[in-house]
Design a binder for these strands. Structure first.
Lengths: 194, 194
DNA sequence: TTGTGAGTATACCGACCGGTATGTTTACCT
DNA sequence: AGGTAAACATACCGGTCGGTATACTCACAA
């Protein structure tokens, strides 16, 4: 994944992806037509299909872009913490701020998973990878913290994380991430994490 | 909401709702057209629009039916447990069996919330009510268990519940509900629940 | 027996969907 | 100066969408 592997986007393609990211997230993938994307990006459909090939591939790019933004956001928070337990706390803080700033419609991956019911749609794999990555992160932190049964603890932390997103999005629980963080901390204590 | 308020459905309407429930859940609401619903129910579109008025209202009925099925399932499990803590465990057991039997595509409410991006769509309120009900259930059980900060504990339990659904659906964690149940039990201990 | 509600069959509406075709213009690189 | 990639504009394709209109059959109940 060096820079040579990722071809630089043309200015129009960038605009298309930015617009699609916004529209797909806020209105849903199936609700947004390519014509609207083209119009909002100040581009013709021709250009989109020349650059992205199909809506399916544009959707994949959208999901990758969302994931990359979240990873970037998260890494900034992880960079400030060192001990495993502090890093778990930092992850929930990252989630809290993320939800406040960029997540008014819940998790883009979960939403896409709901919309893309076709098992063959490549967008599903992107969502699966993202969730697998989050699960691995928590499992890794649980293990590094010296917890007993780190796999189970990691899964529980990931569930609190995911559940907080739903709670905030659907139920409107404003302090969901902070509640999840406190519960996560308690669970780490129970599991004897350092 | 007495029985006089719920008009009995005509046989064709029942078939339509059953078919729509299955199709909307497994393929997604926006992906399924009314023509397909009509065909699978052995009914003309005319009949559907005579009985349900619009797709929007059929969707609302679908969500209510799913919720009713889940409530029925849950009540069967709650009926067997008495103490608050045992009832929490029973709820997670209900979830475990529910996911194994009727939930291959995750939570219908969360999925619908993702698909129905229009804030005016009445289906959103059904999903919100369902999640609010679940939150209230856990908060009530936490309070009855004599936990300190029952609101926070209840929210945490609800998040584990919701997170388990996502973990199982997207990440494929088969024992998600059991892991969530164990974490929930540990949290109850931490909060001094009886 | 006569009306009424339920359902059928078929045809249609305008709007939009994802995707393609043809051809033109702009701008930068060698 | 010439070539090439990028973006333009426009018009079109077959198909599906939610929803409506018309006219018919059937069963049952007053």
């Amino acid at each position: 994944m060096t820079s040579s592997g990722t071809r630089p986007m043309t200015p129009a393609a960038r605009r298309v992806l930015d617009v699609a990211t916004e529209l797909f997230y806020t209105r849903g993938i199936n609700t947004v037509g390519m014509e609207l994307v083209a119009e909002r990006a100040g581009v013709t459909k021709k250009t989109i299909y020349d650059r992205f090939g199909s809506k399916q591939q544009l959707v994949v790019q959208y999901l990758r872009a969302r994931d990359a933004r979240w990873r970037e956001h998260l890494d900034a928070y992880l960079g400030r913490a060192d001990a495993p337990r502090a890093r778990v706390a930092a992850t929930f803080e990252a989630l809290d701020d993320w939800m406040g700033a960029e997540n008014p419609r819940g998790c883009a991956m979960v939403n896409a998973y709901a919309e893309l019911s076709d098992p063959e749609h490549p967008g599903r794999a992107v969502a699966e990878d993202q969730k697998r990555g989050l699960r691995d992160l928590y499992a890794d932190l649980a293990a590094r913290a010296g917890a007993d049964d780190p796999a189970a603890l990691g899964d529980a932390l990931a569930m609190l994380h995911e559940g907080a997103v739903v709670a905030r999005n659907v139920t409107g629980v404003a302090d969901a991430a902070r509640t999840a963080r406190a519960a996560a901390d308690a669970l780490m204590t129970v599991h004897g994490a350092a």
